[in-house]
Design a protein around this nucleic acid. Structure first.
Lengths: 214, 214
DNA sequence: CGGCACTTTGAGAGTGGTCAAACGTCGTGG
DNA sequence: CCACGACGTTTGACCACTCTCAAAGTGCCG
């Protein structure tokens, strides 16, 4: 299957909102964020998904034919593009692949639902803890995180856009986790000092990150 | 395709959390809610999706093989079940159907993302207004709502579980919308008195409810 | 008529937002 | 080597929003 590779630096736009949807992408290295603009407020965005290596970036674009969001590179990334025409051909030849991609979309949706549950039932500190637990679990599964350390090349402003708080309040949640000696911040990395306490605080249950995606 | 029909009364469990996933369901009449339990707190749930006539209830169960939520009947409903084995056969014969079901899952996910955006960017009154705008648009599209009236057979406690507030605060948001003369509550129906103001308050953009889902 | 469930209201407490300023840290240029 | 600016982080003060607990009001049904 013919593909195109590209690298992006931190903050670069990997998929723009209004671009023609002729291809989809998969992350090879690094992380990316799905970012929705807020209509009445320019310069204000909401991030609804975090992608790590192995994730498809805009499968929904392939299924639906349009995209309402941008995908931003978090830290440096390398990405592989596949033309939709090629993908269509391959799916016709291998119907199981279609089911696999469908599963990927469904897993994506399961994460969105879990984020909705977290937003409705957790307070800022626990909510932040939940995000850290999820990202560690996902990174650990693909071998990108071990020994309690995960990559988080992200500004506190972006954490605020993910969790729906102000940057200032995110700062307090970060400090709260630090003061409780649950995590330690090391630049673009986070070290989890007490997984049991952290996941208990976040009421984290990894079941929603089901195993069989890809 | 052999199917089974069933009717449910208000509050009945249509799909339970731990039941064996041998079939999927489609709503023929009425509305249903997808409800997640909160782990540490019994009797506390979060509703992450509302289904109306024509929607599939648990396609994700078909794609992923497990379900982490229940589906509750909101008001009386009538539902059609299809065995997964049958669905598999039909999909093999008509690959376009698989694509259609995938699209349905993707549209579902788009609604979840919009709910995340709304939760992060709207306050209680505007957030409630957004839900009303969405449900009216969806019901209107299938001919179930006209003349500014939509069906909402739902308790304020359940509105709270959808939007992530306490029932008491929902009550104040309802009163707020009423005091501004934007909507009127008529039992299980809501009449929209000023669509322009309501959708402006909610920053509602129906684009995410894309047309081509079934 | 009572009981029950839901809605409405009030008061106090806690959580989160906004504004403003101070504090690193890290390049760049003098 | 230091000065400077840009940018992100941290802190404080005050205000707005939402939660909790409690109690009263309303409608429905037995």
């Amino acid at each position: 299957m013919p593909t195109t590779r590209a690298s992006f630096r931190s903050g670069a736009v990997i998929v723009s909102k209004d671009e023609e949807l002729t291809r989809s992408a998969m992350i090879l290295q690094g992380m990316a964020a799905r970012s929705y603009p807020i209509v009445g407020k320019p310069d204000h965005h909401v991030i609804t998904a975090i992608h790590i290596a192995g994730d498809f970036l805009d499968l929904k674009g392939f299924a639906l034919g349009h995209l309402r969001y941008r995908v931003i590179s978090m830290g440096p990334t390398s990405v592989e593009f596949v033309a939709h025409d090629e993908l269509k051909k391959v799916i016709e030849d291998f119907p199981d692949l279609a089911h696999l991609l469908w599963q990927t979309t469904a897993t994506d949706a399961a994460i969105h639902e879990q984020w909705l549950v977290a937003a409705a039932s957790l307070r800022s500190t626990a909510h932040l803890a939940h995000l850290i637990c999820e990202l560690y679990t996902r990174q650990n599964r693909i071998g990108a995180a071990q020994g309690g350390r995960l990559t988080l090349p992200i500004l506190q402003r972006e954490l605020a856009e993910i969790l729906g708080y102000s940057p200032i309040h995110i700062n307090r949640a970060v400090r709260d986790l630090r003061d409780r000696e649950l995590v330690r911040w090391l630049g673009a990395e986070v070290e989890i000092l007490d997984w049991d306490e952290l996941s208990k605080l976040a009421r984290f249950d990894p079941q929603y990150l089901n195993e069989n995606n890809l």
